[in-house]
Amino acid sequence: MHIVACVKRVPLTDIQVKVAADGKTLDTAGVEYMLSFYDELAVEEAIRTKEKLGGEVTVLTLGPADASKELRECLAKGADRAMVLPDNAWGTRDARSTAKALAAKVKELGAQLVFTGRVATDRDQGAVGPMLATYLGWACVTDVVSLELTAGGGKAKRETEAGVETVQFSLPAVLTCDKGLNEPRFAGLKGIMAAKKKSIEESTAEQVANQANFDKLELPPPRKEGRILGEGAAAVPALIQALRNEAKVL
């Protein structure tokens, strides 16, 4: 089975956000990057699935041509191939054009199973996985926390407001990975050496123009200055008072 793990490079989670001069985008000067947290889970699940059911894992990213540091890490963990669809506008790509480009490539690769992250921690959309599946006409389960796969399909669990759902699906499928699904491995020395010999493939993406407009980017309004009401249990009456009379939430 050919398995694809879709990964995206995102800013580190603890960056101090600055808005660029255009007032619409992130000022990327000095920003350092990582693979999105959930995409690590997608790569891990792809490799585990290959180890169990056999096949080949391709890690796929639409992004900067120099994403090789992140991709090499995936190769070192056990992915067979790594492919970049170079896109200079990757930072501002909307979900639809990203999903369309990935769908075209997944089809071309002849994959049967795609893992993505639940959400990329830059735009916080959680849209590309289910859109990719919809464009491909495939089954999709989002926010997967546990997975049982067989040759023709599988069962996945996801956590919702109502409880834990079990979803039965057919293959081919796109599964988006949530925390709890697995613990990503670290790359071993052997893997790191082997990855050095592999090349990172560059391929072209279907160019689809953005539809969504990013009109403005702002820092969140600072929360108004709070108050320390006091120390220890003695401050409890003041808190009750404030919650009832000022904040009106009690």
Partner: peptide, 17 residues
């Protein structure tokens, strides 16, 4: 409006088809 970068910035978005 939607928070992005985990709420560290707020984007105003429109369009989309």
């Amino acid at each position: 409006t939607r928070p992005i970068l985990a709420g560290k910035a707020i984007a105003t978005v429109s369009g989309g088809g």
